[in-house]
Every structure is written in C-alpha cells, then in structure tokens.
Design a protein around this nucleic acid. Structure first.
Length: 475
RNA sequence: GCGCCCUUCGUCUAUCGGUUAGGACUCAGGAUUUUCAUUCCUGCAAGAGGGGUUCGACUCCCCUAGGGCGCACCA
C-alpha cells in the first residue's frame, strides 16, 4: 500500500480534505476548525488531504493558499499533507478489484448517448438517473476497443441509511441512487471513489464536512460496502450563508481567510467566531481556544445554516485585541504595515512610541487596521496634516484658544498629570470648558478629532515634538 | 422535476414537555469621560402557518409555506 500516509495515529482520526481550486474560504475554515477541535479534544489525529484529482482546476497556488490559511488559523495537522492525485494507482486498483468481484461493471455508453438519455427523462418528467443499460449486459456486445467507464453495481432495492452525528439518521431509498462512475474512461478515479479509498486507507474514523456532502454520504457508503471496508462516522455541518441568508458569495464574505487577516482580524477571533457559528456551550460567547478544545463535542452542533454577522465579528475582535499583550500587538501592527503597498517600516522610535501608547490605543480598535491607522500620528514627526473634523476644530476660535493655552502648558514639567492640571486651570481662568481647550490641542497634535487621551499623548511625544506640532497651528 | 436537510428576537444562540422563553451582537437611551473608545446600567425585540398527541407543547408527529443542498466521465 502507499507509504506516505502511514503515520502513527491515536484515538479518533479526523481529516480536512479541501480541493485546491481556490482559496481557503470561511466555510472550509470552519470545517477544518471543527475537525481539528475534535481531534485535539479527544487526543486523536487530524490529517490534511489535498483533493487534487481535478487536474484542470487544481493549482499549486491554491495549495499554498490553503496551507497558509490553515497555518494562520492556527490549525496544525498531523503528518504530511496527502495529495490525492498521487494515489490514483491505488484507486484504480480498488476499482479493478470491485470489477473482478462483480461489484462493479464496465459501461460503454457514450457521453452523447447519456445526454440524450437525460433529455428524454427530463421530457417525460422522470428523475434524471443513469438507467443501468450496461449493468447486466454482456461486455462482449461492446464495440471492440471502445472506451468505457467503470460503474458501481449499486443495490436497487432497500435503503441506505446515513447515521449522521449532526442531523441524525438520514434514509435514502436505493432506487433513488444510480450506478455512479468509479473510473473515468481515461482510467482516472472519480471523487467518489478517491475519497472513500483514501479515507479507508488513512484510517479515518470521523468524516466531518459540509452539509453539501450529505447526499454523497449515501453513495459513498455503498462504495465502502462494495469494498468491504468499514463505514466511518459522519457529521455534516450546516452551511454558512451570507448576511442576507443567501448562499455565501465572494460579495458576502466567501473570502479567503487571508482576506480576514488583511482586514485586521486576529486568528483567535476567527476561531471563536467560527466556533460559535453553529456550535454552542450554554451562554458562553467568548471562548478561548483552550476551552474550545476542552468543551468541543458533536452534540452541541446546530442543525440550521447560520449567517455571517460582521458586527459581531468586529465586537469579538475588539475583545481579543484588548486582551492581547501590548508587545504582541506592536508586532502585529508592524507586520500589518509592512504588508501594505508600498510597505511601511516603523522606525525604532515609532515602535517605542507605539508600545507606550498601546494600552490606550487598543481600547479603541476593533481591527488591526483601525489600530494601525489610529496610531498614525505616532509614526512620523512634525506638523500634522488635518483631517476634515480636525480642520474644523482649528477653523474658528480654536486656533486662538490653542495659542492662548500654550504658555500654561509650557510652564509645566510636561508630565501627563501636570499638563492636564495646567489645561484645567487655564480653562477655568478663561471661562471655557476643558473640551474647548483640549480639542484644538488634539487636532494640532494628532491631525484628528479623536485620539487616545490627549495629555497622555503630549507626554508621550515629549515637549519638543509636541510644541512643534502645536505651534504649527497656533497663530 | 426528483431526493435530502433546515425553520426561537434583525443576527448568532440557550431551552432537551411545565421558564415572566435566557444570553450575546446590533440598535435606542443613560452613567462615567478632554475627544473617541472602554466599562457599567436600562430598553426594544422571537417560537413561519395550520392540524394533531398530551392534563400541559418552542420542545413529539403530520401537512403547508419558505430557505438551503444534491441529482456530471466537478470536487
């Protein structure tokens, strides 16, 4: 048998099996997460298999994107990723065995012939299914040398039951299921065959995947039965819909997980959010990965499809930003800035300022993007460009108030408390509210109308740098 | 068309026959505050519809409606 799939396995064996025809999107990420969580919860094994049998659509770039997405999500798999296409010979071998055992047969029907058959069925209002025309026919009747596919000789009566961990028993009448193709006319295996053979060879005990595969489960069970292998436990996860309830599309958020990274979401946010989308643990909302591993089970998986809610994602991300250590956040912001085009590299001085301001900064950011942009005034020295609302603050009486307040500030030792004290005293003396004095100062110092606490920032930037910025707008 | 799955506040969900149907997000209002946030408090808001079963249904069964998935020599 194949050598690259024999790794030491313990406990339940789970797997995530994406096809590399695109990015790792949010639905796939959740499927991977649930598999990973259960494997880690039980001390089992989590395998990764790349289903690249569709040679037309599979690309190495997509493989990389999926692997990177998994790594970013923090979902580590056991052993090396298995590439399905590399196992085609084994799939063929299994099909040949089924042929020899009379569990499968050769079908010489041409593509045109089958199309015609379906059209006829459609016209008569019949279900569109392969009619088994070669099932019991003597292969000797086939035109010599004609191409053929190998089909499963599936049971025509009775029913196939999928015992699903999420939705319970699902019954399919066998007469609804036709004889599916196992091997194409070019000898390559179909998805149905490949999955089943690989799962069996890899010792997969639990197949946890999207609900779009629920129908496939019945067909796959039939192949497994024909192979004489044992049937794994199945669990089909309800799909994720867009905010409007319709199928998740690119427009909605069927985005690569890397897109979420670029929008400034933390991996722990994604894990928590995706976990709660379809799984619950009483009233718990913020669930650490540690607790998730401790608590995860199949019983609490919901049956109905869920929708993406970006407001909730933002809220959760804000929470995780707040509880992330400052040093970590500084690194994240620096990395984020470097990913920009053109890349922005923070100077050591800017990094130091960022670190000092982080406790106040992180309280007002929902994403890393907001965190990075909210700290913009810390990155470079000198006079600020004003945004619209800052310009308004320095438009009317603001400038005069700024100029009037300067001497009082200059007389301090430029510590946060002393600056605040001086500003308060000045405001009181001139009959102004503190805000009237503080806002123009903030505008000149940061170029914006909102920022972390003003006096803290003045102290952080230091007397010299602060005065350069303030004087630039005091005339 | 055929088959399968799903259905509690706008959204994510709790409830596993007996609750004033709970929590979270959003939204509205308030407290704190130099701005914005954070934090805290208050409020708005739900069992798709119709039949059963039962002393009693959100919970069990059936029908309808709505939504989703599948029906390839794609995965």
């Amino acid at each position: 048998m194949t050598e690259n799939i024999s790794i030491q396995k313990t406990g339940p064996v789970l797997r995530f099996a994406p096809s590399p025809t695109g990015m790792l999107h949010i639905g796939g990420a959740r499927t991977a997460l649930f598999n990973w969580l259960y494997a880690r919860h039980t001390g089992g094994t989590f395998l990764l298999r790349i289903e690249d049998t569709d040679r037309e659509r599979s690309t190495p770039e997509a493989v990389d994107a999926i692997l990177n997405g998994m790594r970013w999500m923090g979902l580590d798999w056991d052993g090396d990723a298995v590439f399905q296409f590399a196992r085609a010979a084994r799939h063929r071998e299994v099909a040949q065995k089924m042929l020899a055992d009379g569990k499968a047969y050769r079908c010489y029907a041409t593509a045109d012939e089958l199309t015609a058959m379906r059209e006829e069925q459609k016209a008569k209002g019949l279900p569109m299914r392969y009619d088994g025309r070669w099932r019991d026919r003597d292969p000797a009747q086939a035109p010599p040398g004609a191409p053929y596919v190998v089909r499963l000789k599936s049971p025509q009566t009775g029913e196939t039951i999928v015992h699903d961990l999420v939705v319970g028993d699902v019954r399919f009448a066998n007469d609804q299921l036709d004889d599916m193709v196992l091997l194409r006319s070019d000898g390559t295996p179909t998805y149905m065959l490949a999955v089943v053979v690989d799962d069996a060879d890899m010792g997969v005990s639990h197949v946890i995947r999207g609900a779009d595969h629920l129908n496939n489960a019945a067909r796959q069970i039939q192949i497994i039965a024909a192979m004489g292998a044992s049937i794994p436990a199945y669990g089909h996860l309800p799909l994720i819909n867009g905010p409007d309830g319709a199928k998740l599309s690119k427009r909605h958020g069927a985005l690569a997980v890397e897109a979420y990274r670029d929008m400034g979401y933390l991996p722990e946010t994604m894990r928590n959010y995706l976990l709660r989308l379809g799984w619950s643990h009483g009233d718990d909302e913020t669930i650490s990965t540690e607790d998730a591993i401790k608590w995860f089970n199949f019983e609490a998986i919901g049956k109905s499809p869920a929708r993406m809610d970006y407001k909730k994602l933002d809220n959760l991300n804000g929470h995780y930003i707040r509880i992330t250590p400052d040093e970590t956040l500084v690194g994240e912001v620096a990395a984020f800035l470097e990913r920009q085009t053109p890349p922005r590299i923070l100077s050591m001085a800017a990094r130091t300022r960022l670190a000092a301001a982080m406790p106040s900064l992180k309280e007002r950011a929902k994403t890393l993007v907001q965190l990075a942009t909210g700290a913009d005034f810390l990155y470079t020295d000198g006079k600020r460009d004003l945004d619209a609302s800052a310009a308004r603050l320095l438009d009317g009486p603001g400038r005069a108030r700024l100029a009037a307040a300067l001497p009082a500030l200059e007389a301090t030792d430029w510590s946060g408390p002393a600056l605040e004290e001086a500003a308060r005293a000045h405001a009181e003396k001139t009959g102004l509210k503190l805000g009237d004095v503080a806002q123009p100062l903030r505008a000149a110092l940061t170029g914006t109308a909102t920022s972390p606490p003003l006096f803290e920032m003045l102290a952080l930037l230091g007397r010299e740098e602060s005065l350069i910025r303030l004087r630039a707008y005091a005339d």
